[in-house]
Design a protein around this nucleic acid. Structure first.
Lengths: 144, 144
DNA sequence: ATTTATTCGGATATTTTTGTCCGATTAAAA
DNA sequence: TTTTAATCGGACAAAAATATCCGAATAAAT
């Protein structure tokens, strides 16, 4: 469904949020260990998230990544997906047609429009704060 | 959502069904032209569909690809997706975790299970006969 | 000031997906 | 029987996604 990069991005953001809830910064090494992802690749993805202003970073000793607590409820899965994979998953034709639309639809246009709509709703209504809480509770996990 | 290979597979199967409805075989050249896909790559994909017994082929002059009319209603999008992309889209964790399950869920497990379920329902309930009819009517199209 | 621990950015490598080429095989038509 | 038009199968090529390496920049601790 999502690219590997996007999967790592979502998992990393949830972990960073969990740490930020306790006032802690997360280093690249921490994140990579806790979400079980390749460290150098994860670094690139975190940089993309920083540029998209979904997470923040500071350099140097005691540096790391964090999320503003005020923002936690407004960061959605949808926002992360858009930042990393773009919005193809919401907008592109399921059969790969460039000009597929209501006027000139592919054979599965109507059915797929429904699915994409419900997917979009779920991703937009799911914020990082709630996911980080479940993680803190030990209800959910981010690796294996 | 699907791989390019799978998109071509679905479009090709619909076109072949449409032709088979009129008792015609479709050649590789026809298919590639009518669904606007790279011909040699399409050839490989058609061979996979033949092996999966979703479509049939005959060699030699006047040969080509076709679908048994008795089977048209039982060939679903879901079947084609499984043959080409496997069932990862129905079964794999949305965040890429290997052991994600109800017992040890990732943070989006419940929400994604819903989406996958509704996707699966749509793909399993959509047969090729109905899609080919829409194409024959000129309501839908397979290229551009 | 120097050391240490961190992110940033560019170049490179590997793997997977997508796509091409071409000869072998098949079967109908000439 | 030869030619022609088609699928099949293996090797190869190109592009995209995934992943690694390493030095530069930064900032706190020593």
């Amino acid at each position: 469904m999502f690219s590997k990069a996007c999967e790592y991005a979502i998992r990393a953001t949830i972990y960073i949020a969990r740490q930020s809830m306790e006032g802690l910064r997360a280093s690249l090494a921490d994140i990579s260990r806790e979400i079980d992802s390749p460290i150098a690749f994860t670094s690139k993805i975190l940089q993309q998230l920083v540029k998209a202003e979904i997470i923040y970073s500071t350099r140097g000793q005691t540096g790391g990544f964090y999320i503003e607590s005020a923002m936690m409820e407004s960061i959605t899965i949808a926002g992360i997906v858009t930042a990393i994979d773009g919005d193809a998953i919401y907008t592109d034709c399921g059969l790969g047609l460039k000009e597929c639309s209501g006027a000139e639809p592919c054979p599965v246009h109507e059915k797929f429009a429904e699915i994409r709509e419900s997917l979009k709703n779920v991703l937009e209504s799911t914020n990082i704060a709630s996911l980080a809480s479940g993680l803190k509770n030990g209800v959910t996990c981010l690796k294996r």
